[in-house]
């Protein structure tokens, strides 16, 4: 090898050798033992009533087990750091996926109430006679259905119907 390989400004000795790390058998045996013990622990804990703490505890134990498998059986502890980067990068993206979805589910009901998402169109039509600006009025068929459902004309007397019609109309939108 005539060309030198540099890392952090220093020459790397023997850059192209296989740096495989061979774990002693004992390591694998100890890890297996720890995995069995932790499995027994989760199993036992599932019979104890920990209430709301049971999910975090179970997930903590599972995470420790997973770290043992990834670190020792899958060799990430000794491996090229780039593989660890790929793995942790995946976890970050899974975190984003979970975080945004669960955040949306948490806040969705409040937002729907706040913005009258499911009630706005019918309430406005019943109160003011204003046809929906987008969506329904752009589609002749849907507009016809909407008007048929609400009697087409509007005026006095609709206020009383609004409550009943509203409830029936978006009952399906709830979980």
């Amino acid at each position: 090898m005539s060309d030198k390989v540099f890392l952090n400004g220093k020459v790397v000795e023997h850059p192209h050798e296989i740096h495989h790390h061979v774990s002693p058998v004992r390591h694998y045996q100890v890890v297996l033992g720890a995995l069995f013990v932790l499995t027994g622990l989760t199993y036992a804990v599932s019979f104890a009533s920990l209430g709301p703490a049971s999910l975090p505890v179970a997930m903590l134990v599972a995470t420790i087990k997973a770290s043992l498998v990834v670190g020792y059986f899958m060799h990430l502890k000794y491996d090229d750091r780039y593989n660890l980067f790929v793995f942790l990068g995946t976890l970050i993206f899974i975190g984003i996926f979970f975080g945004f979805t669960l955040f949306d589910l948490e806040s969705r009901d409040a937002l729907n109430d706040d913005q009258r998402t499911f009630t706005r169109v019918e309430e406005d039509f019943n109160n003011t006679g204003v046809k929906p600006a987008v969506g329904i009025s752009n589609d002749p068929q849907r507009l016809a259905e909407f008007e048929a459902k609400h009697g087409g004309e509007h005026g006095a007397g609709h206020g009383a119907e609004a409550g009943a019609g509203g409830e029936a109309g978006h009952g399906g939108a709830e979980h």
């Binding site: 989760t42 920990l50 999910l55 997930m59 599972a62 498998v69």
Partner: peptide, 12 residues
């Protein structure tokens, strides 16, 4: 499976 087992079978 390490995550499936507690979530599906065990967790209360």
């Amino acid at each position: 499976w390490i995550f499936l087992f507690p979530l599906l079978y065990l967790v209360k």
